[in-house]
Design a protein around this nucleic acid. Structure first.
Lengths: 242, 242
DNA sequence: CAGTGGTCTAGACCACCAG
DNA sequence: TGGTGGTCTAGACCACTGA
């Protein structure tokens, strides 16, 4: 269950173990989990290590504590709609279209100044650079370049990015994608966009630059996209005072 | 500074101390704070206790860590602030520009189909229609048409809209502005936009359509704006699962 | 190399809760 | 009273950073 010799931290192993128990329903909502001291004893680890695991699960909303009583499983998170931060794939599905991609290039390069700044890494640090034409219902929708720090998002393959990068990051790498900031502007298509998006010279495009962050604030993605203005509107909502 | 005999936990005292230092600007953004070991030594407390304080500040977004380097102060929340729902006036001020307006027309008309739908009222219901050129630092920034249901937003005058419509709604009418949804797209400027925004034929513009709602869900505003693409980028942030 | 944050230990005392 | 979570200690080794 817990492998002390694993390069994966013990608290993280315990976290994942508990998370799967909770998600599978093996422990029901409002049921107590074993005490911190019992976990420490059972796995022969320090109680502080157990606490580190439980702390993370509490702040992620899986557990809640009660002084003098114990630690309990929270009610299942209501399934939330993806109105917020979504990948291209999720976005198109939400719009009722069928997403696909044509990979133009996929390589590891040295980060340039802009990319390094956006990803909060040093210049010339290795980053994945992924260039794709994004299609919706088999027609070009956007020309997109994604940069990912190679030291953070490890083990990327063409296979993975053809499936779902966000799912890989969340499920396989166990990172929590938290938020993104975007800059959206209008421009006239350049030659490369005219070519890949199959639009006319002088056609308008919607440029979206996105920086995405994990829960701890680490930037993990920088995406530059050019969307066909005749096919894509960016839709979002915002709240007063936030 | 740190009172070990206080009933307030040490980590919490350290947290508050650091928070006030950060908020007062005594430690600037991206500056390193003293190391965990130094705090432990300085206040004669355990490093784990220091870590507990820093962990909380990291998860609250005040600090970020870099392995092998140190712990640093994050940009102020207002600076990194995800632009919430703001008026043009508030938006420009936040961008460090001086907003002004040139009123083109201001009248009560019968709502057309699109406007009626957006404002959830019947067609031909009276609405204010306000057409303005929005200026930033005295240069044209956007051409904007605002529709407001006359039966809801009462007593509008030129005076008021030249000052602050949102403040009037919030303070004088005592409504709570809650949220808005926007559609953002790119287009080529039409003649009327070319004229009022003083841009060239074929220039790109950013079209923003906004529907705004009060806390009870009542739509109170429908705005169609055309921003000069060379002067304006729309910036926002969004969160995963929201 | 010395210094940093990341992880971990094996204890300790406290306040709180239930039987 | 015994068990729980909350706080805290005084160390330890690791990987990573920069000089």
């Amino acid at each position: 269950m817990i492998d002390k010799n694993s390069p994966i931290p013990i608290y993280h192993q315990l976290e994942e173990h508990l998370k799967s128990k909770i998600e599978s329903g093996a422990i029901k909502a409002d049921e107590a989990i074993p005490s911190e001291r019992e976990y420490a004893e059972r796995y022969q680890i320090s109680r502080m290590t157990v606490r580190q695991a439980l702390n993370n699960l509490v702040s992620d909303g899986y557990l809640y504590r009660q002084k003098g009583k114990g630690t309990f499983v929270n009610k299942k998170k209501v399934e939330q709609r993806l109105h917020g931060l979504t990948s291209f794939t999720e976005d198109m599905i939400e719009r009722g279209m069928k997403p696909s991609s044509k990979l133009l290039s996929f390589e590891i390069i040295a980060a340039g100044a802009e990319t390094a700044h956006r990803l909060n890494i040093k210049e010339n640090t290795p980053v994945y650079e992924i260039k794709r034409v994004r299609l919706a219902d088999a027609a070009p929708m956007a020309l997109e370049t994604t940069y990912l720090p190679a030291n953070l998002i490890k083990g990327l393959t063409e296979e993975i990015i053809n499936q779902s990068l966000y799912r890989y990051i969340e499920e396989k790498l166990s990172f929590t994608i938290h938020e993104a900031t975007q800059q959206i502007e209008a421009a006239i298509a350049k030659d490369i966009e005219i070519k890949h998006l199959q639009i006319e010279k002088g056609a308008p495009i919607l440029l979206i630059h996105r920086s995405s962050f994990l829960k701890d604030g680490t930037p993990f993605e920088y995406v530059k996209s050019a969307y066909r203005a005749d096919r894509y509107k960016f839709i979002h909502s915002m709240q007063r005072g936030k």
